[in-house]
């Protein structure tokens, strides 16, 4: 059983689909309920989309790496990118409010990430943003 995967991602939002596909296969091979794999995939989707849309936008030398592990009943990942220093945990997330006319979706991605992950840690090292994330896997 493969309990760890390492991926190098292109600076392209289409990579998000590949990450979620990979996570679904990884989850199935590790006996993780599909809903839980997708929940973890959602957090990765939001964070990778932010990196590609903002931090590395227009950068030909953008580098993104992702490692995913299943250990001790947890799904864990480290996501690294060489964009400008950005701590998503320090970014302000506003509580959702407003009706259909006034509603904005900006910042909602990080709200979902914080809501779904049990632990998030950010550090900046050697020119890379490094975000580690953990989610306890619940039984189906």
């Amino acid at each position: 059983m493969i309990s760890r995967i390492d991926m190098a991602l292109a600076n392209d939002v289409q990579e998000v689909a590949r990450v979620i596909d990979t996570l679904e296969e990884f989850g199935a091979a590790n006996g993780i309920p599909a809903e839980q794999s997708l929940r973890f995939g959602l957090a990765l989707d939001e964070l990778i989309t932010n990196i590609i849309s903002y931090g590395l936008a227009g950068r030909g030398d953008g580098t993104i790496t992702l490692s995913i592990e299943h250990r001790g009943g947890m799904l864990c990942a480290e996501l690294a990118d060489n964009g400008p220093a950005f701590d998503p945990l320090a970014a302000e997330t506003v509580p959702p409010s407003g009706d259909i006319e006034t509603r904005e979706v900006g910042g909602l991605g990080l709200t979902l990430v914080k809501s779904f992950m049990d632990r998030l840690d950010y550090r900046r090292a050697d020119g890379f943003n490094r975000l580690t994330m953990e989610m306890k896997v619940k039984a189906a």
């Binding site: 979620i20 997708l38 959602l42 259909i100 979706v105 909602l108 991605g109 979902l112």
Partner: peptide
């Protein structure tokens, strides 16, 4: 539908505004 991200929420909102 098994999955929706904030990008999906954004397009639902856009579609809803158009319908409204």
């Amino acid at each position: 539908l098994d999955y929706i991200s904030s990008a999906g929420l954004r397009v639902i909102l856009t579609t809803a505004k158009k319908a409204k």
